[in-house]
């Protein structure tokens, strides 16, 4: 295969890949909508969706229409968007920090979100007025601000930023543990734990709209800066020598990833591993250039998360396993395979 271009000869291959991914995604979403304690046929799912969109007026049982449209479809779409967003964040951070282990939570965002959530669940800060999501969002951004401060804005090197992220994660995890152990009861601790591992239960259409907006905007900004991200291949100084305004790009893209991660975490909890594993998988298929890598990451991340959500609902009868558990259990063997296949051939 000769990759001649990121927007020419290779574009056909990328387009084919993305088209294929979208078909698989549509099928996975349909499956996620059909499967559950109350099983619904795929034909009914299709009609319920077209009814919901106002395209058809088919006669289907109202209960099934409601399950499909009000509960499961929104859940599946949030899963797809969260997967796409987390994978996108992972790809951006791996490029900016030049570290294959970077993922959305490396900047302390998930630790901050959990502290924020715990403040709301356990301490009851802003009870009523402040929801769990808003607390998590505030915590995530507090962590990000701390990391930005510790790493000197955006001017210091990648390792410095990662160390600042580790320090922030430790601090916020300690705060979370402190609050839970000193003032929480067993039930509250369990709630926090469950929330931290991620759950798509309870998401509704307004969540979908918000996430569509945030994910689409982030993807757009990142694609606009894709060339600049490529220029980071040989480091910050090299990017500067290629005409990239390094500090500005870093600040904008860190901001975008923090915003996107905070939004996702505050909605569905801290779902690990997607941001780490998906960019590597996408990289393996479409190569390292970001104009191709970023859309591929979003597509693969979406499919991966919807499938993980299906697994989380069917693996134990009558019970939903936390999504973070599934992403790790499914992701690790897959990741091991990629690591094995892409080892240096020397």
């Amino acid at each position: 295969m000769t990759r001649t271009d990121d927007a020419g000869g290779g574009a056909g291959w990328l387009a084919l890949f993305l088209a294929l991914a979208l078909v698989v995604l549509a099928f996975a979403v349909a499956l996620a909508t059909a499967i559950g304690d109350y099983r619904i046929g795929l034909g009914t799912v299709f009609l319920a969706v077209t009814n919901g969109l106002g395209l058809t007026g088919a006669e289907i049982p109202p209960i099934e229409a409601s399950i499909v449209w009000d509960l499961r479809l929104s859940r599946a779409l949030v899963a797809a968007l969260a997967g796409a967003g987390l994978a996108l964040c992972g790809a951006i951070l791996q490029a900016l920090l030049r570290n294959a282990l970077a993922e959305p939570f490396v900047l302390g965002v998930s630790a901050g979100a959990s502290t924020g959530a715990v403040c709301v669940i356990v301490l009851g800060i802003g009870a009523g007025g402040l929801s769990l999501s808003m607390g998590a969002f505030a915590g995530a951004f507090a962590a990000f601000a701390l990391v930005a401060l510790l790493s000197n804005g955006a001017t210091s090197g990648p390792n410095h930023t990662i160390l600042a992220g580790v320090a922030a994660s430790q601090l916020f995890n300690a705060l979370t543990s402190y609050i839970v152990t000193t003032s929480g009861n067993a039930q509250q601790a369990r709630d926090v734990m469950f929330w931290l591992l991620g759950s798509f239960g309870g998401v509704r259409w307004p969540d979908v709209s918000l996430l569509v907006l945030v994910v689409a905007a982030s993807l757009g900004i990142c694609l606009w800066m894709a060339r600049s991200l490529d220029a980071f291949t040989f480091g910050d100084e090299d990017a500067a020598a290629l005409g990239v305004p390094v500090a500005r790009i870093r600040l904008i893209l860190f901001g975008v990833t923090a915003m996107l991660t905070a939004t996702i975490v505050s909605m569905v909890g801290a779902i690990g591993f997607v941001g780490l594993v998906v960019p590597h998988a996408a990289h393996y298929v479409v190569g390292p250039m970001h104009m191709r890598l970023l859309p591929a990451c979003a597509a693969v991340g979406a499919v991966f998360m919807v499938l993980a959500d299906i697994v989380s609902r069917v693996i134990v009868a009558q019970q939903t396993v936390p999504i973070g558990v599934v992403t790790a259990l499914v992701g690790v063997p897959f990741f091991a395979l990629i690591l094995y296949r892409s080892r240096p051939q020397t």
């Binding site: 001649t4 020419g8 606009w224 800066m225 060339r227 490529d230 040989f234 290629l242």
Partner: peptide, 27 residues
């Protein structure tokens, strides 16, 4: 100069064109 990313020689040379290309322009 060093990188961990798996890039081809051609990819590296293409980076040299970065300052001459706008955000979305083709090759």
């Amino acid at each position: 100069a060093a990188t961990d990313t798996n890039v081809s020689v051609r990819d590296v040379l293409r980076l040299g064109r970065t300052p001459h290309r706008s955000a979305l322009s083709g090759w």
